[in-house]
């Protein structure tokens, strides 16, 4: 991994602006900083304004584990694409598969609510997936152990995506973020794409094989084992990145 905001990497990033490129962003930890309570996560006004400006210059997508209804409360403009529940929502998914996913999640919730967990563990119901948060648990080690044991008892077997102090449970057979990203690129009519995310739930995208064009992958925070090629140091650099992208596209428009 190398820094995205270095002189050399920015030449490559700029070259993506010369042709139609989709700019896709994870939400929590990327556009909005990680907070103790998920309901308190919002973009700053500056970030939102910059993202909105970018969306007038190039196609923009927000790809999140949150449900679309939840995302809409936190995004006060209309980017070209809002993808929720790790790809389950926002890509024209058929109703039958969503209904099935909802039924499986209801089943899981009923079972999980009967189990005992460390104080501070929170079950977030996102209609088509679940998020089991343990950020606020006093004893995180114990909370993790309990959650993993309970997840192992769920039927049907859940697809687990580990995030920052959270286990995301998706019904079996559902799209992962990587497949969702490929679908999104096709829908946007872009040939190339840029994606930035901050945790293991984004590794599906970082490691996806995209042969029809170029995919520039960026992680928030350097991590040696990540499949992302580039990184920015911290979430606070997102505004600087957005300004740079806007600058590239404005130069192109004026040139």
């Amino acid at each position: 991994m190398i820094p995205l905001l270095s002189k050399n990497s920015l030449v490559l990033l700029e070259s993506f602006s010369f042709t139609r490129t989709l700019y896709a962003f994870d939400f929590d930890g990327t556009l909005a900083k990680i907070v103790t309570k998920p309901e308190n996560a919002f973009m700053t006004k500056t970030t939102e304004s910059l993202l909105e400006e970018l969306s007038t210059l190039a196609p923009v997508a927000i790809v999140s584990g949150r449900s679309i209804n939840d995302l809409k409360k936190r995004v006060h403009f209309n980017p070209q694409f809002l993808v929720g529940n790790h790809g389950l929502e926002g890509l024209g998914n058929n109703n039958a598969s969503l209904t099935k996913a909802q039924a499986v999640c209801s089943q899981w919730v009923q079972k999980l609510k009967k189990m005992k967990f460390e104080s501070g563990v929170e079950i977030e119901e996102k209609t088509y997936s679940l998020a089991l948060h343990y950020r606020q648990a006093r004893n995180k080690t114990n909370a993790k152990k309990q959650l993993l044991q309970s997840i192992a008892e769920l039927t049907p077997e859940a697809r687990v995506i580990t995030g920052k102090s959270v286990y995301n449970l998706l019904p079996p057979g559902t799209l992962h973020k990587g497949a969702a990203m490929l679908h999104l690129i096709e829908k946007s009519s872009a040939k190339h794409a840029f994606y930035i995310g901050d945790d293991d739930t984004d590794e599906d995208i970082f490691s996806v094989e995209y042969s029809a064009g170029q995919l520039m992958t960026v992680r928030v925070g350097q991590k040696k084992t990540s499949h992302a090629k580039f990184y920015i140091d911290r979430q606070a650099e997102i505004n600087r990145l957005l300004k740079i992208l806007i600058g590239f596209h404005k130069k192109k428009a004026n040139g």
Binding site: S15, F18, T19, K191, Q214
Partner: peptide, 8 residues
């Protein structure tokens, strides 16, 4: 060609 394939 490079315009169409950034980072080729």
């Amino acid at each position: 060609t490079l315009v169409e394939i950034p980072g080729a």
